[in-house]
Every structure is written in structure tokens, then in C-alpha cells.
């Protein structure tokens, strides 16, 4: 199976940004997949499978994050991450 690499940008729209709870949801979502999942903002790139990484990336409310997935199940992983951003991490 050919490895695919996808890049997509998402806006943080929940009230408090990417704090512990959203970070945990992202890690849980990314962790289900084999592929690499990274999140990038202002030149900082962290693994989306690392809680500590996501909590240091400073995902302010209103900021834009670039998510990269690469691997066999890159598309599914991207969809899972997108679902969280779209639903404001099920907060508010």
C-alpha cells in the first residue's frame, strides 16, 4: 500500500484552545492509527500522539494549526482529527 501524506489546516474555535482535555482527545484520536500525525504552528512541530507536545504548542483560541498525517491510514487519521476540530473538541 502506498503511503500518503496529507496536510490540512484547522482553526482552533473552542473557548480555551488546546488545553489538557482537547490534547488528550487529539492524542486518543491519533493514537488509533498507525500513521505519523504531526501538528505544526509558528514553526513548532510536535507529534499529535504526545500530550506534552500538544500542550506546549500554544493552540490559542483562533489560531490555525497545520496537521500532517503520513502513512497507510493517513486519510482516516486526518478525518478523525478534523472531526475534533469541527466539533470544537466537544466543549462549550
Amino acid at each position: 500500500m502506498a503511503d500518503t501524506t496529507l496536510v490540512k489546516k484547522f482553526k482552533v474555535t473552542n473557548e480555551y484552545g488546546i488545553h489538557a482535555r482537547p490534547a488528550a482527545l487529539l492524542v486518543k484520536a491519533a493514537g488509533q492509527f498507525e500513521c505519523d500525525v504531526f501538528m505544526e504552528k509558528d514553526g513548532n512541530k510536535v507529534s499529535c500522539k504526545s500530550i506534552m507536545g500538544l500542550m506546549t504548542i500554544e493552540g490559542y483560541p483562533g489560531s490555525t494549526m497545520a496537521v500532517t498525517t503520513s502513512g497507510a491510514d493517513a486519510e482516516d487519521a486526518m478525518n478523525a482529527i478534523e472531526e475534533l476540530f469541527v466539533n470544537k473538541f466537544y466543549e462549550d
Binding site: G17, G59, Y60
Partner: peptide
Amino acid sequence: DDKIITRLTKGR
């Protein structure tokens, strides 16, 4: 978590 939330909301 509280510390991060404070930082994030200031950032906004």
C-alpha cells in the same frame, strides 16, 4: 491545565 488555559486565553 489551569496554567495552560490562562496562557491560551491571554494569547487570544
